[in-house]
Simulated assay, not measured.
Amino acid sequence: MHKPALPLEGTDTYNDRIRIVLVETSHSGNIGAVARAMKNMGLGNLWLVNPRSFPDEASYARSSGASDVLDRARVVTTLDEAIDDCVLVMGTSARGRKVPWPVMAPPEAAATASRVAADGQVALVFGRESNGLSNDELQRCHHHIHIPSNPEYSSLNLAMAVQVLCYELRMLYLRNLEQGQGSPYLGSVTGPGEAGWDVAPATVREVEGFFEHLEQALVDIEFHRRDNPGQLMTRLRRLYQRARLDQMEVNILRGILSAAQKAAGKASDQPRPSDAQVSEAGQEKGHV
């Protein structure tokens, strides 16, 4: 028998727009422990990418009454499915990557996630118990989150790592309530996803379509060779992920790529933005 679940504080809150994504979890008990950590801090949006075993009794037993979080959990087969409709993706990672990526500590990550959640789904991605997220998976993320644990004993249990991030989100939420702001979405306007920005942030699907188009266009104009790629696409991906493109910016960039391919005599099957889309952004046709 599962323990009866106490109700969440409410599902129609910014907390439900923050998605906890676990990638290929080996031990189902850890999934239950994560559900408990989430519900402790008022979160309930759990996604599981290809877990070894779920649902089962071990996961529900370890959830200690957070069975409703497990009941609502979405199980998908790939990371892309879990983040496809998100406007911001943040992955937990150790430092020391060959190509540095924007890295945040948990408090800064929580503040960014809370702010951007006003405009769409935000994913906080946690990797396998044994070896975390792969380099390819980390490259899907706009930012990496590093938990500054003891370097002499740095390994965190999966649920502990989730608890750290959920705690920071909870404290931020409570501070906003205490200040009488009435909304966790307040903040300066510096880019897509913030109140006052004129166009919605691009989704992961839209940005990945742009990266595919960009690589093909660079091949077509003989700037990039797939048989000797070096780090070109990785560095370009880092550049555009850092910029956090909005939907109109993706349309304009893809229109430029199509025009470049046409000028090079290469037919493109990639869609270009319509005149209406371009004019909506206040641009003249063919120019930025």
Score class of each variant (00 low, 15 high):
P273H: 02
S274W: 03
R254L: 04
V76C: 15
F210H: 01
G182H: 10
D16F: 14
H27Y: 15
M38R: 06
R254N: 15
S183N: 15
G255A: 08
A267M: 07
S28F: 02
H287Q: 09
E249V: 05
G120E: 06
P192C: 06
R242F: 04
H213L: 09
L214Q: 01
L172W: 04
E129C: 10
I147R: 00
A195E: 11
A109D: 01
Y14R: 14
L165Q: 10
G10E: 12
L79M: 12
S53I: 05
Q216Y: 07
A66D: 08
L48A: 10
H144F: 10
R238N: 12
A264Q: 06
L124G: 04
A123P: 04
M90E: 01
L22W: 00
L232Y: 01
Q261L: 01
P229T: 03
H144A: 09
D68N: 11
A217C: 14
Q231R: 13
E284I: 11
V250Y: 00
T25S: 15
V49C: 13
A195F: 05
L8F: 06
A37C: 07
N30V: 15
L186M: 11
S114C: 10
E168L: 09
A202Y: 00
V199E: 04
N15C: 14
P148E: 03
W197R: 03
N15R: 15
E212K: 11
A82G: 12
G65F: 07
G44S: 13
K262D: 12
R225F: 05
M248S: 12
R128G: 08
G10R: 11
P148H: 05
L214T: 08
V69I: 13
S59V: 06
E137S: 14
I256P: 00
I31P: 00
A5M: 10
A159M: 09
N15W: 06
D269L: 07
Y153D: 07
A267L: 09
Y240E: 05
L70F: 11
N50Y: 03
R244Y: 06
L48T: 00
R36K: 08
L165P: 03
S28H: 01
A82H: 05
R36G: 12
P229V: 07
